[in-house]
Design a protein around this nucleic acid. Structure first.
Lengths: 331, 331
DNA sequence: GTGAAAGCGCTAACAG
DNA sequence: CTGTTAGCGCTTTCAC
């Protein structure tokens, strides 16, 4: 059994050639005579050779690693995104370091330092409360970055049209006859929040109604099931009496529905619910959830593509998937 | 605005000391005079210095990176596990490279090569169909590995007592009066499958019944919602008429319940369902799912701990959480 | 306490 | 086509 790790030198010795030739076999095989190449390849095989990525990167100055900082890997939205990224990176033999900040600035700072030390080729960033700081930190470090799921004039980005998403969701609720709609929103700094809100307002105005009467916004500290639940409790206590709730994502919707159940309100007859992202579990919930579908896989792919090749940026279109949570007919 | 990346040399020049001193500040600060240290630290600050991980690893011979190969990051089970791992790694300033093989040997081979090239300090492995090959490949490469969620005599491992888990699940179903129980199982090579089956058989024998009459096993190609659904279809067609189904994990259970719904069977009155893992979504499904809870976070932590410190290995105890899917009283 | 210098494994430029 | 060699940024003796 071969011992530890073999180096190019070992391979060269075993094959009776120089390290330069071994390197050529690795990087420009066409420049090496077939016979020599065969010898070298055989030696590699026998010695179980794997090139040392550290040395390689040190020399090359740039690594084949890309980082992605997301808010919560527990949310399948981000794992789907990550798959899209990985698939694209694999094409060019790069790897992903996936970092879940959990919206904790200390964790985030640690990951940022780490990615800088790794010399990542770039970082893919998902919008969250500290996005701006993060982007400027990256710029200061001279690390290219791409903003995912958000669009920006002064930054490379791949986006989804959240105005359209918000509009579709609220137009649907209006069509179902709802006139008091609660929006369980993310932080206002999030572009997604602002855009979806704008879409919601658009939809209401297009229906000839007054947004300030029809829509009420509750901002959630974090986009988790628990905060969704708390947000709904707060809204119910206010006495406004909404008949529908539009949630910033499916996990928030899950929390909201949990609370509705707890307080004996039926979905959708007492309260209609619409989520966002259309996670695979949306269709399997206690009441199947109407949700705005995002093309997460493609989004991840596009972001990685943009980083690697500087492809012009993309704007995806979301699509409303109607289920029982907002439509009794589907019960 | 500082340009690109500063090296120890730059820092040394800026601080008016030698690179050796800079390195000392980094690695053995106590050996450096306070005044000198302050100067160096200030220079680092100004130049926005980050040590180059490649160079460091190249020199050290071993990296501060750990790999984990799991079957499907889309399954929250694995992301929870990953968090546990990351949390432990953070303590010793290591990073995780999370690889989702999707049970595809080509993907897996790619990741294995990649981890070897990265010179990872070790790999944490989750059982799947090709586990044995993977472990021997790692051994051949001289990379330490820890088997997660499975126990082994001749391998470092952290496990959960799946015999107990299987026993608890099936004992519960028997107590509910079920006498024809379907087991939607994983591949037989999976230790988890064998252990849970053993637990199920134990429970049946303890109740004075005949396992061959009470239990029927259907082996699923993959542990996905789709395969769970297909497995159930197959079982229903066979005409045996089970009244309960024990699923290898919650995602499989989700697929099974989808099929029950489709064919108009009520849960739990026509068919009781028990899952495994107790994902956060188990409680939120159309019918809240009874499930065997695993301590995923702790499991991940323990695995990373074992790799880093050679702590003696652990065996966790799972716990059955009963919900409506197997108990009308909770309806 | 601090500096000088060697060397980790690899690549690329150059010589033969 | 193949060999020789310098050097990427860092750590670590070993002198001073």
């Amino acid at each position: 059994m071969t011992p530890q790790r073999a180096s190019v030198k070992d391979v060269a010795a075993a094959a009776g050639v120089s390290v330069g030739t071994v390197s050529n076999v690795l990087n420009r095989p066409e420049r090496v005579a077939a016979r020599t190449r065969a010898k070298v390849e055989q030696a590699m095989e026998e010695l179980n050779f794997h090139r040392n990525a550290s040395a390689r990167q040190l020399r090359a100055g740039v690594s084949r690693t890309v980082g992605a900082i997301v808010m919560d890997v527990g949310n399948p939205y981000y794992t789907e995104l990550a798959r899209g990224i990985e698939d694209r990176l694999a094409v060019d033999d790069h790897t992903l370091i996936l970092c879940s900040s959990d919206d904790d600035p200390r964790r985030e700072a640690r990951f940022l330092r780490l990615l800088a030390e790794q010399g990542v080729r770039g970082v893919l960033v998902t919008p969250m409360s500290t996005t701006k700081d993060r982007l400027s930190a990256l710029r200061r470090l001279g690390i290219p970055s791409v903003l995912m799921d958000s669009s920006s004039r002064d930054h490379a980005s791949v986006g989804v049209d959240h105005v359209s998403g918000g509009r579709q969701a609220v137009a649907h609720l209006l069509a179902q006859g709802h006139r008091r709609i609660l929006f369980l929103a993310g932080q206002e700094e999030l572009q997604q929040t602002r855009h979806r809100l704008k879409g919601a307002v658009d939809a209401i105005q297009s229906a000839g109604l007054d947004p300030s009467e029809v829509l009420k916004v509750v901002t959630l500290p974090a986009l988790t099931a628990n905060d969704g639940q708390q947000g709904l409790i707060k809204a119910l206590e206010s006495g406004w009496g909404p008949t529908a709730v539009f949630c910033m994502n499916d996990i928030v919707a899950l929390g909201a529905m949990r609370e509705l159940r707890r307080s004996g309100l039926a979905v959708p007859s007492d309260m209609a619910v619409v989520g966002y992202d259309d996670l695979y579990l949306a269709a399997e919930l206690m009441t199947p959830l109407t949700s705005v579908r995002q093309p997460m896989r493609q989004l991840g792919w596009a972001a990685a593509d943009l980083l690697l090749t500087d492809t012009p940026h993309v704007l995806f279109e979301p699509e409303l998937i109607v289920r029982a949570s907002s439509d009794f007919l589907r019960r």
